[in-house]
Amino acid sequence: MSARLEVADIMRRHGEAYRQAHEGHLGRVERRTMSAIELCRTAALGGHLEGCPSCRTIRVSYNSCRNRHCPKCQGQACRDWLAARQGDLLPVPYFHVVFTLPEPMAGIAFQNKAAVYSILFKAAAETLLTIAADPKHLGAEIGLVAVLHSWGQNLHYHPHVHCIVPGGGLSPTRFGRRSGAAQWIACRPGFFLPVRVLSRLFRRLFLQDLQAAYDAGNLSFFGDLAGLMAPAAFRRRLAEVRRVEWIVYAKPPFGGPGQMLTYLGRYTHRVAIANSRLVSMADGRVSFRWKDYRHRGKVKVMTLDAHEFIRRFLLHTLPDGFHRIRHYGFLANGHRAQKLELCRRLLTITAQESAADTTHDRPAATPASRCSWCGRQMVTFGIWRCGEVPRRPFWSDSS
């Protein structure tokens, strides 16, 4: 059985030629991402030697690159992150709301990733918090986890934010104090907030903040968008997108905390394309599976020139230090523990009961430290860097 094709194989085969062909256009982040994926889990990064004291199986494990754009490195990172989120779960339905930038905004976002992505996060979160706090809708302080994605199934640039929101919130506060006894306010069954209202506020907040960033000189434009440096041209672009409906999509609610954790794991550490979607690499071309949502999610195969595949993959690299998972409302980092404790008390369960209810849904521990033959715990007896030779296991000299 042949080894499964990986993005790393494509980078190793075509990466150097791509770098040479685009010498003047590749940034530091893109170059570092390509190099990390090429070297991931190879001897170049060093590794360690594991052995099973029971059946004496020996296994070489090379180090991971840990680059957040690498398809091979995100599985364990996702499991660790989800395990840390166990304490945040509440016994309520959860909703999934997606905020998408319209096509005319995509080019501006690509040329100003850090600034526009931050505006996108802020506008999406503020929209949800504002509408949820309105007594005409929910009238509560909600919490949410927001995750940035910038790709569609065909790897085209498509910036959007996924928001996972518990179905309810805390009674509102006034002047820093709660108005009356604190209460948990639940959403109507199967309904969170009206998407049209969300869409219009999201559009207004995003364009307002984008104009402020432009006025402060925090945006830059080049190539086809260089004309937007002129204030009149920029105002016309904003006027155009102000006249179209912006897409906010609220998916049907899913079950309780266990299902939410599994569902969230599909989004938090996903990269532009998983290795499992790759089909073949031959004659300088790469084929991969994708879902065509314009045809009811039908699975199709797309074939691209290898350089075009790499180009599309690199569209989705993030600026250094940029956080693509953020928490807001009562899930914000500054007061999350206290607010969640209050939520559980109002929902008449204890934190211990909550954890007990969801223990069976915790992500499974990685099997990497178990012997593939007998299932016993493997022992690490040698760690080396590139050019070093690991020492032999203590039992290897015995008969």
Score class of each variant (00 low, 15 high):
M1R: 06
E6A: 14
D9P: 00
H14T: 09
E16W: 00
A17I: 15
Y18G: 01
Q20A: 14
Q20L: 11
L26E: 07
R28F: 03
M34I: 05
L39E: 13
C40Y: 05
R41F: 00
A44E: 11
L45N: 03
G46M: 10
L49S: 12
S54C: 09
S61Y: 03
S61M: 08
Y62L: 07
C65P: 03
H69C: 08
D80M: 01
L90V: 01
F99M: 04
P104D: 02
A106H: 15
I108W: 00
A109L: 11
N112L: 01
N112C: 02
A115P: 06
I119W: 05
A124P: 11
L129N: 12
A132I: 12
A133Q: 12
D134P: 00
E141Y: 01
G143T: 10
L144D: 03
L144C: 07
V145G: 02
L148D: 08
L148W: 03
H149M: 00
G152Y: 10
G152F: 06
H158D: 05
H158R: 11
V165E: 00
G169D: 11
P172M: 06
R174I: 15
I185V: 07
R188N: 09
P189D: 08
F191D: 00
L205V: 03
L207K: 09
L210G: 02
D215W: 05
G223M: 05
D224M: 10
L225D: 07
G227I: 07
L228R: 14
A232S: 09
F234C: 08
A239W: 00
E240D: 14
V241R: 07
V244A: 09
V244F: 06
I247T: 15
F254A: 07
G255K: 15
G256A: 06
L264I: 06
Y267S: 10
H269W: 02
R270H: 14
R270W: 02
A274D: 14
N275R: 12
S276H: 13
S276L: 09
M281N: 14
M281A: 15
D283S: 05
D283E: 14
Y293G: 01
G297A: 14
V301N: 06
V301G: 08
T303P: 00
R312Q: 02
G334Q: 15
H335W: 07
R336V: 02
R336K: 10
Q338Y: 08
K339R: 14
K339C: 05
R344C: 02
R345P: 00
T348K: 13
T348V: 11
T348N: 15
T350V: 06
A355F: 12
H360K: 10
H360T: 15
A364K: 14
C371N: 03
S372L: 10
W373L: 04
G375Q: 01
R376K: 09
W384C: 10
C386V: 09
E388V: 14
P393K: 00
F394C: 12
W395G: 06
D397V: 13
S398P: 01
S399D: 13
